[in-house]
Simulated scan of single mutants.
Amino acid sequence: MTEAATAPAPSGARLTVTLLGVAQIVSWGSSYYLLAVLAGPIAADTGWPLAWVVAGGSIGLLVSGVVAPFVGRMIDGFGGRPTMAAGSLLIGAGLTGVGAAPNLAFYLLSWAVLGAGMGAGLYDAAFSTLGRIFGSSARRAITNVTLFGGFASTVCWPLSAFAVEHLGWRGACFAYAAVHVLVMAPTLFVLLPREDRKPPPYPSAAANCDAASLSKDRTAFLTLAAILIVNGAIQTTISVHLLTVLQGQGMSLAAAVAIGALIGPSQVGARVVEMLVGDRLHPTATLLCAGVLVAMGMALLALGAAPSAVAIVLYAAGNGVWSIARGTAPLALFGPERYPVVMGRLAAPNLVAQAGAPFIAGISLASFGASTVLFVLATAAAANVILAAFLARASTRWR
C-alpha cells in the first residue's frame, strides 16, 4: 500500500486537522497554561508555597520529556489514534488528582501523571500522528494544527478564570478532567483515522544504510536536537519571566502586561504567513527564518535598541513559525517512515530543557539581573541561527 492510499480524503483530512486542533487547544490550556491562572488560587487556598505550586508544571514538562521517546514508539507501532486518546485519559487522571490533592506531595505526583498525558497529547504527539496519517504531505496539516494551538491561552485563560470564580480551583480541574475523559478521549479514538499497524516504507526513501548515510542522519539529528533544546530553553524562560524581565528594564507592570499580550497574535499571524508562503521554502530554511526572527527580537530586547513591543513581536513571530518548523523539519530530513520515533527522541531533551530553564533563569535573575539574563538569551539565540544555517545548508547537499 502506498502513502497516497493511506491518506484520508479531503473531507476526512479537514476533520482530522480540526479534531487535533481542538484537542491541542484543550490539552495546552488545561496543562501547560493551567497554572498561569490557577497557581495563585491554589497557593492562597492551601497555604502551599507558590514556588512549589508552580513546580508542578515543571514536573509535568520533565515527565513529558521522559515519556516522549516511548510515545513516539507507540505512535510508530500502533498509530496516533489510541495513543492520543490515552494521552487525554492521562491528562484527565492527572487533573483529577490535582483537583483532589489533599497535600503537596499528592499534588506534585498528580502533575507527574498529567505530564505523561502531556507527552502523549501535545504538539509532538500530534505532529507524529499527522506524519503517520499524511506522510510526506503532512506539512500543511501541521501548520493548520498550530493555528488552532495558538489560541489555547486565548480560549482557556478566560475559561479557567471563569471556572475558578464559580467552581473554585478544584472544580476547574475537575471540569477540565471531565472534558478530557468524557469528550476528547472517546472523540479522538473514534474519529481519528485508523492507520496500518506499521507504516509502509516511504517509496522515495532509499534503503541506504551505508556509513555516509548514517553519518548524515547522526549529524542532522544532533544539530536539530541542539537547535530545539536551545530554543525551548529560551521560549520557556521568556514565557515565565517576561514580565519580570521587562520590569527589570524599568517598565511598569501594566505596560509589561500590554506588551506580553502581543505574543499570541504575533505567533498566530506568523503562522498564517507561513501557511500562505511556507511551501516555497524547505522546512530547514523555515527553521532558519524562525531562528533569525527570535534572535533579532532577543538582541533588540537585550540592547534596548528598539521599543520593547517591536522586539517582542519579532520574537513571538519567530516562535510562531518555530512551532511549525520543529514538526516539519524532522519530517523532511528523516522521512515519514521514521518520523514518530525521531519526534519522540527529539522531544525528550527539548522538554527536559524547558522544564529546567525557568528555574535556572529565576536564580540568574535574582543573582545577576535582567540585563545579564537577556544577554545570555540573545547570545544563545544567535548561536541557534548559526546551527540552523548549517543545517539548512547541509540539507541542500543531502537532498
Score class of each variant (00 low, 15 high):
Leu243Asp: 14
Pro201Asn: 07
Ala285Val: 12
Leu300Met: 10
Met275Lys: 07
Val273Ala: 14
Phe359His: 14
Ala68Tyr: 06
Asn208Trp: 08
Arg399Glu: 12
Trp322Glu: 00
Ser31Gly: 13
Ser11Val: 12
Thr129Phe: 01
Leu387Lys: 12
Thr379Ser: 10
Gly264Tyr: 14
Ala295Lys: 08
Arg140Tyr: 11
Gly369Ile: 00
Gly171Asn: 13
Ala207Val: 11
Thr223Lys: 03
Met184His: 02
Ile133Leu: 01
Ala175Tyr: 00
Val385Gly: 12
Ala120Thr: 11
Gln249Met: 04
Pro82Ile: 06
Thr83Cys: 00
Leu147Arg: 09
Gly150Pro: 03
Met275Glu: 12
Gly171Tyr: 14
Ala138Ser: 12
Gly168Met: 13
Ala13Glu: 07
Phe70Glu: 02
Arg326Asp: 01
Ala177Ser: 06
Arg271Ser: 11
Gln267Val: 09
Ala44Arg: 13
Ser30Pro: 09
Ser308Tyr: 13
Ala309Gln: 15
Leu222Phe: 01
Ala23Lys: 06
Gly135Asp: 04
Trp48Pro: 08
Ser136Tyr: 02
Pro49Thr: 04
Thr6Gln: 09
Asp210Gly: 11
Ala325Pro: 02
Pro82Gly: 05
Gly72Leu: 02
Glu3Ser: 02
Phe390Gly: 14
Val145Ala: 08
Val342Phe: 11
Ala357Gly: 09
Met184Asn: 03
Val294Gly: 03
Val294Met: 07
Ile238Asn: 02
Glu274Lys: 09
Ala311Cys: 05
Gly369Ala: 00
Pro283Asp: 14
Val268Tyr: 10
Tyr33Phe: 15
Gly79Ala: 04
Gln249Pro: 01
Arg197Leu: 08
Val113Thr: 13
Ser160Trp: 11
Pro158Trp: 13
Val230Glu: 05
Phe78Ala: 12
Val257Thr: 14
Ala380Arg: 00
Leu191Gln: 07
Ser204Lys: 12
Gly115Asp: 06
Ile59Val: 12
Ala357Gln: 11
Gly77Leu: 05
Ser252Thr: 15
Leu182Met: 15
Val67Ile: 15
Leu188Gln: 03
Gly12His: 02
Thr154Gln: 06
Phe162Trp: 14
Tyr123Glu: 15
Pro158Phe: 13
Cys156Arg: 00
Ser364Gln: 06
Leu34Tyr: 10
Ser137Thr: 05
Glu337Lys: 07
Ala270Lys: 07
Ser153Phe: 07
Ile91Arg: 01
Gly344Ala: 08
Tyr315Ile: 11
Leu89Cys: 06
Asn144Met: 11
Pro336Trp: 10
Asn350Asp: 14
Ala370Phe: 08
Val98Phe: 08
Ile259Arg: 03
Phe368Gln: 08
Gly356Lys: 03
Leu222Lys: 00
Thr154Asn: 06
His180Phe: 07
His241Cys: 12
Tyr107Asp: 02
Ala220Pro: 03
Phe334Asp: 01
Gly297Trp: 04
Asn319His: 01
Ser395Ala: 14
Pro193Ala: 05
Val273Asn: 07
Pro349Ser: 08
Arg197Gln: 10
Ile234Asn: 09
Gln354Cys: 09
Ala55Gln: 12
Ala366Phe: 10
Gln267Phe: 07
Pro8Gln: 05
Glu3Phe: 00
Ala9Gln: 12
Ala347Trp: 07
Ile25Ser: 07
Phe78Asp: 08
Ala161Lys: 10
Ala261Gly: 09
Leu331Pro: 06
Met84Leu: 13
Val257Arg: 15
Gly87Ala: 01
Pro201Ile: 02
Arg218Glu: 14
